[in-house]
Amino acid sequence: MEIMEKDVAKTATKLKTQQILEGKVLSVKWEPNLKYAWDNGPALGRYLAELKNGRIIAKKCNKCHRIMIPPRMFCELCWRPTDEWVFVKDTGIVNTWVVSYVDWKAGRLDIKGGVRPITPAVIEIDGASKGMGILHLLDEVDPWKIYRGMRVKAVWKPAEERIGAITDIKYFKPIE
């Protein structure tokens, strides 16, 4: 059996996006309005509370000796409860990064109009185990001059604006 053009020809019918946008095909629009209240658990709860204090906290596993960030109540490698809380620094290095011209919905940023590309990165935090990174954003840096191993530091929101969220750190910027 060879799958031929004639076999697949009748299986699916293509519509043009334009036909849909212009209302030439019947369509239904639905915007879900789902609301959630997420519990953070003890590990991330403490992590967020310390972010509000302007500090980053990690948790250590005394079996594999990893200092983990974000902190976890159990070590996923050793499969046992973690041990001490450990404060780590708000500095680190860029493990890998992106220069993004799109937002989360794949919507295009107006780069030509002067909007700065978004520069998310995996940042290895000083004081945590090697390779232990978090996702965050870079700023106050030329997007095209970011490099692997670049040293960066957290830029915090003012204390009165912090709410206990990962966004209490506005972004990371290069250290001179």
Binding site: Y36, W38, L44, V102, I118, L135, I166
Partner: peptide, 13 residues
């Protein structure tokens, strides 16, 4: 939902 969604990540990133 706690550590990453507030940064509005995408799969492309």
């Amino acid at each position: 939902h706690t550590t990453e969604q507030p940064l509005y990540p995408t799969l492309i990133w």
